[in-house]
Amino acid sequence: MAQCLRGKGGAAAVEEALRKAVPWRRAASASYHHTIQAVPRETTGPRAAARERRNGHVPAVLLTLAGAGPGEGVAHRKLLTTDRKQLSEMLKQSPYFLSTPVRLQVRAGERSTAVVHSGTVLPIKVHTDESTGNILNLVMVQADEGTMIKVNLPVVFKGEDVCPGLKKGGFLQKIRTSLVYLCPAEHIPPKIEVDLTNLDIGDRVLMNDIPVHPSLKLLSRNETMPVCKLLASKPVE
Rank of each mutant, 00 (worst) to 15 (best):
residue 123 P to I: 06
residue 115 V to K: 04
residue 76 H to C: 07
residue 121 V to Y: 11
residue 91 L to I: 10
residue 131 S to V: 11
residue 125 K to I: 15
residue 78 K to R: 15
residue 116 V to Q: 06
residue 93 Q to A: 15
residue 111 R to E: 15
residue 87 L to Y: 09
residue 115 V to A: 01
residue 118 S to P: 01
residue 70 P to M: 06
residue 86 Q to H: 06
residue 108 A to L: 11
residue 132 T to Y: 00
residue 68 A to H: 05
residue 127 H to Q: 14
residue 80 L to Q: 10
residue 68 A to V: 10
residue 98 L to S: 08
residue 127 H to A: 14
residue 87 L to C: 04
residue 73 G to L: 05
residue 71 G to R: 10
residue 110 E to A: 10
residue 117 H to P: 00
residue 85 K to H: 14
residue 108 A to H: 12
residue 128 T to R: 10
residue 103 R to M: 11
residue 72 E to T: 10
residue 75 A to R: 07
residue 114 A to W: 00
residue 102 V to E: 12
residue 70 P to Q: 00
residue 74 V to H: 04
residue 94 S to Y: 03
residue 133 G to L: 03
residue 77 R to H: 11
residue 71 G to N: 08
residue 126 V to D: 01
residue 108 A to T: 06
residue 131 S to I: 05
residue 117 H to M: 11
residue 92 K to S: 14
residue 126 V to K: 03
residue 95 P to T: 08
residue 121 V to P: 03
residue 90 M to T: 11
residue 94 S to D: 15
residue 87 L to V: 12
residue 80 L to K: 09
residue 129 D to K: 03
residue 103 R to L: 09
residue 86 Q to S: 03
residue 71 G to A: 08
residue 80 L to R: 12
residue 82 T to P: 02
residue 90 M to W: 11
residue 102 V to A: 11
residue 98 L to Y: 10
residue 128 T to Q: 11
residue 115 V to C: 07
residue 106 V to T: 02
residue 73 G to T: 08
residue 97 F to T: 00
residue 88 S to F: 08
residue 79 L to T: 04
residue 119 G to H: 03
residue 133 G to S: 00
residue 72 E to M: 02
residue 95 P to V: 09
residue 92 K to F: 13
residue 75 A to T: 04
residue 74 V to Y: 01
residue 99 S to H: 02
residue 103 R to C: 11
residue 78 K to E: 15
residue 76 H to T: 05
residue 129 D to P: 00
residue 68 A to Y: 03
residue 73 G to A: 07
residue 68 A to E: 12
residue 111 R to K: 13
residue 119 G to K: 02
residue 69 G to L: 08
residue 115 V to D: 04
residue 66 A to I: 00
residue 99 S to F: 02
residue 72 E to R: 04
residue 76 H to P: 00
residue 82 T to D: 10
residue 83 D to T: 09
residue 101 P to S: 07
residue 109 G to I: 03
residue 79 L to D: 05
residue 67 G to E: 06
residue 127 H to S: 14
residue 118 S to Q: 14
residue 84 R to Y: 01
residue 91 L to K: 11
residue 92 K to M: 13
residue 108 A to R: 15
residue 108 A to G: 04
residue 82 T to N: 00
residue 66 A to Y: 01
residue 90 M to F: 09
residue 73 G to D: 07
residue 122 L to A: 05
residue 90 M to D: 07
residue 81 T to G: 03
residue 89 E to F: 13
residue 112 S to P: 05
residue 112 S to G: 04
residue 77 R to I: 06
residue 127 H to T: 13
residue 109 G to E: 13
